[in-house]
């Protein structure tokens, strides 16, 4: 009896797991495809004032037009590209800084480790957006690069702390002690033993942070601190649509949908990766 129940329960879990991953892959893949497409083709010139003021969605303008008569669908497509650039860029910066510092901290003497750990905690205590605003303010002017850098630095503390904890656990394992006893150099331990073992957990976290970076970039652009106009960041589109939300709600809804689908896609992808990569579940498949 109990065996039967377990089998029945295991099946839906299996299909649900792949469904999560598949939906995530589909949503993210859709945005990646659109972003790549914008490099060679968009329905309209993104800055061209091709329509009337605040036109409703139609066959000519799928998401309507903004106050200047620019095609919103084109701008949202470009927005995908900006969101992905910032997302990938920020996560890459965060991974480089965060993983390096996290591993360093795990290897360091107790004294240095304590200082680094405290520094990570302090940085994490700052809201990501606030930290990013500080970095943007410190650079000469707001740009796509400054926004990406700012978010990368803000996220790196989170990555560093996670890396440190994961690395410490691995470093206390018997096989590391064995490797050390056998005279393995520290680069060899880091690259052959440590990173391959913490990589799956880090990858899941990167996917999650990617989604958060996309939202944070939209928030920065909403505040006028992201990529400067006419870069069609979704945050900027939302900000511009704010005043016309009663008369032209599509101006806010369309970029909102784009933002939500990419972030949900990244989160589902992260969930799917976690479930697929979780060694405690692997046996049940």
């Amino acid at each position: 009896m109990s065996g039967q129940v377990e089998t029945a329960a295991a099946r839906p879990r299996l299909s649900r797991r792949s469904l999560t991953l598949n939906i995530g892959l589909f949503l993210v893949g859709m945005h990646v495809t659109v972003a790549l497409l914008t490099l060679v083709w968009t329905p309209y010139d993104p800055t061209g004032m091709t329509g009337g003021r605040l036109e409703a969605p139609s066959w000519a303008h799928w998401a309507g037009t903004d106050r200047l008569g620019r095609d919103l669908f084109t701008q949202i497509m470009i927005g995908s590209r900006i969101a992905l650039i910032v997302g990938f860029g920020a996560v890459a910066i965060a991974a480089t800084i965060g993983v390096t510092l996290g591993v360093l901290s795990a290897f360091a003497t107790r004294y240095l480790d304590d200082i680094l750990a405290a520094a990570f905690d302090i940085l994490i205590a700052f809201p990501t957006l606030l930290l990013a605003m500080l970095v943007v303010a410190a650079t000469e002017s707001a740009s796509l690069f400054s926004a990406t850098l700012a978010l990368g630095i803000a996220i790196s503390a989170i990555v560093a702390r996670l890396t440190r904890i994961l690395a410490k656990r691995i470093l206390s394992m018997d096989y590391i002690t064995a490797a050390r006893t056998a005279g393995a150099s520290w680069p060899s331990i880091v690259f052959r033993h440590l990173l391959p073992n913490i990589w799956p957990m880090l990858a899941v976290n990167f996917a999650l942070q990617f989604g958060l970076a996309v939202i944070a970039e939209a928030s920065l652009s909403y505040l006028g601190l992201g990529a400067p106009p006419p870069n069609a960041s979704w945050g900027r589109l939302l900000q511009e649509a704010q005043g016309t939300v009663y008369t032209a709600p599509f101006g806010a809804i369309a970029p909102g949908i784009a933002l939500v689908t990419l972030v949900i896609g990244m989160n589902l992808l992260a969930d799917g990766l976690r479930e697929a990569g979780d060694p405690t579940r692997r046996g049940r498949q």
């Binding site: 800055t47 061209g48 004032m49 106050r67 200047l68 505040l223 006028g224 601190l225 106009p229 006419p230 900027r236 511009e240 005043g243």
Partner: peptide, 16 residues
């Protein structure tokens, strides 16, 4: 361009 309405949208119009 000051970061509050209407300046950013005016700036984009002028750019165009």
């Amino acid at each position: 361009t000051p970061n509050y309405d209407p300046h950013p949208i005016v700036a984009q119009f002028l750019q165009n």
